[in-house]
């Protein structure tokens, strides 16, 4: 197997350990820390009050809101005009709520994304309200719903897949630049060309090598997100597919750069020119829709956009359809580049 020797060489290189593991972790802790701080530490809860008649909210709904507010456990926001990307908890007070409660069967809906449920807190508040209104403990029940709309992630949740995305991207692009320029210069490729090994087998081996690195980096980044930010997630199995496609998507770029740029240093500089814009414009640190329309269009041409989106879909939203679409885009992009790359890179000297 071509890959095993390279994996062994990889973990013996301190530089590699830094750039593929430590660097993403530092980025995540740094960005997650800074923005997480500004965002405030208390959970933000949005109230959607539909129990309104003639523009005036019902007494009961007003009482409920003030109870939640005074509990001091969460920060309340109104849904109107809120930044859609920051919503992770919505309490829906349905119309006719007060009437229903009077009849003994009021239903309150809590919509949440996966992390940090406020259900417990809310039930505690409802118990107080129940006794206050009717003396009977169960006239208001709580129904919990998964909130799976786009952009309902908190900052660390949003950031983490982006960090995995850029790690896979830089690993793929620079890994391919490195193998193609270094092994061309020290004539390893020429040596391999004299063995029965096929170029396709070598490229396949390199892909497996990239994939293993990507998976290791992913596991470590997820673990760090858990340890430092308490972020828990249960990725959908398609996440694996997205990761595989991601590992496949980027080496072709590096291979082509290495072909047209003669030495390792200038190839790496060109690699930076290519990866840097992608890093910032593909929804890694902030969502695409905060960017001007023109840049959003540009982002559509960046493979990293699809990797980030696919990872978020598979990690948090269980949105298989989006994840599969993104994986397909990545595979098509990656394989096309790899095929072109392997056609133009010759092991033979003419």
């Amino acid at each position: 197997m071509v890959a095993t020797g390279h994996i062994r060489g990889w973990y013996r290189n301190r530089n590699n350990i830094f750039w593929t593991l430590a660097f993403p972790i530092i980025m995540m802790v740094l960005f997650g820390g800074i923005f997480g701080f500004f965002q405030g530490s208390r959970t933000e809860v949005f109230i959607q009050n539909e129990d309104v008649t003639g523009g005036i909210p019902s007494d009961l709904s007003v009482r409920l809101v003030s109870l939640i507010e005074s509990s001091d456990l969460v920060t309340l926001r109104t849904l109107e005009g809120a930044d859609q990307t920051a919503i992770s908890h919505i309490i829906l007070i349905p119309s006719g709520f007060e009437e229903d409660v009077k009849r003994g069967r009021g239903i309150l809906t809590l919509k949440e994304t996966g992390s940090g449920s406020i259900g417990e807190t809310l039930i505690f508040i409802l118990d107080t309200l129940n006794i206050e209104v009717s003396g009977t403990p169960r006239s208001i029940t709580l129904r919990e719903e998964a909130l799976d709309s786009r952009g309902s992630l908190n900052f660390v949740e949003f950031l983490m897949p982006g960090i995995i995305g850029i790690t896979i991207m830089t690993g793929g692009v620079f890994g391919a630049i490195h193998t193609n320029t270094k092994y061309r210069a020290n004539h390893v490729l020429r040596k391999l060309a004299t063995t029965p090994l096929r170029k396709s087998e070598w490229i396949g081996g390199m892909m497996i090598y990239q994939l293993v690195l990507s998976l290791i980096a992913t596991v470590i980044i997820i673990s760090v997100a858990f340890i430092i930010f308490g972020l828990t997630l249960v990725p959908h199995v398609v996440a694996i597919l997205v990761l595989i496609s991601g590992a496949l998507a980027f080496p072709g770029i590096g291979m082509l750069l290495a072909k047209f740029v003669p030495d390792e240093e200038s190839a790496e500089a060109t690699g930076n020119v290519v990866t840097f814009p992608m890093m910032f414009l593909s929804g890694t640190f902030f969502p695409l829709d905060v960017m001007p329309q023109s840049l959003q269009v540009v982002a559509k041409f960046f493979p990293l956009t699809y990797l980030n989106e696919g990872l978020r879909a598979a990690f948090f939203f269980g949105d298989i359809e989006t994840a599969l679409f993104d994986a397909a885009v990545l595979v098509i992009f990656g394989v096309t580049l790899l095929v072109i790359g392997s056609l133009v890179t010759s092991w033979r000297e003419e």
Partner: peptide, 12 residues
């Protein structure tokens, strides 16, 4: 084959 100026994997 030993190519001219060949060198192999540093870290193995």
């Amino acid at each position: 084959v030993l190519p001219q100026d060949f060198s192999t994997f540093d870290l193995l």
